[in-house]
């Protein structure tokens, strides 16, 4: 009974993620698309909960739903003429696009079915944040530091790009 409910919630959330992600791509209103993205990101956070990744689920909500999307919405709303912007999306090459997407989908399904993923039942995974913290300052110290370098130049680049156009010295 419990697994039935669990499966029902899973497929419900999966449908939500797929539907809203599809709307992000084909939607013609940028603000609506941004809100659809909220739903998609939130659904992914639910998947993380299903996988026992509690820290990732929290981070997903805090960073993607809370931070990035709010910024995105601000960006969209502060932009001029956002409502009468004519978004051209999905109008070109529908048939070849659908064909290649279908082909990739079939290929992925076949591969996911045919490969032995070595899956195991992990039981109750318990909280993960402590071991993630230990790994970040232990084995994964270097990637952690390099991520900070990546963020530094991304920050610098963002500042560089928003500087007034054509401002020379």
């Amino acid at each position: 009974m419990e697994s039935m409910a669990s499966a029902a919630i899973f497929y419900g959330v999966a449908a939500l993620v797929l539907g809203s992600a599809l709307y992000v791509v084909v939607g013609r209103n940028l603000v609506h698309s941004a809100f659809a993205l909220v739903a998609a990101f939130f659904g992914v956070a639910v998947f993380y909960v299903y996988l026992g990744a509690d820290f990732l689920a929290g981070a997903q909500v805090l960073i993607y739903v809370g931070g990035i999307l709010t910024l995105l919405l601000f960006g969209v709303m502060l932009t001029n003429r956002i409502y009468n912007l004519n978004l051209r999306s999905g109008a070109i090459q529908v048939v070849p696009g659908a064909l290649s997407a279908g082909l990739v989908f079939a290929l992925l399904v076949w591969i996911i079915q045919s490969v032995d993923w070595g899956a195991m039942d992990a039981g109750d995974p318990g909280p993960t944040s402590e071991s993630i913290g230990r790994l970040l300052v232990g084995d994964y110290l270097l990637p952690f530091e390099i991520a900070s370098v990546l963020l530094l130049i991304a920050l610098m680049g963002a500042a560089m790009l928003v500087r007034r156009r054509g401002s020379r010295s």
């Binding site: 270097l142 990637p143 390099i146 370098v149 990546l150 130049i153 560089m160 790009l161 156009r165």
Partner: peptide, 21 residues
């Protein structure tokens, strides 16, 4: 590491290419 270093190179390259704003 492969992914992270590759992405660092990519982000820096995008910015260098678009340097003349």
């Amino acid at each position: 590491m492969i992914y992270l270093s590759l992405e660092t190179v990519s982000v820096a390259s995008y910015l260098m290419v678009g340097y003349l704003s």
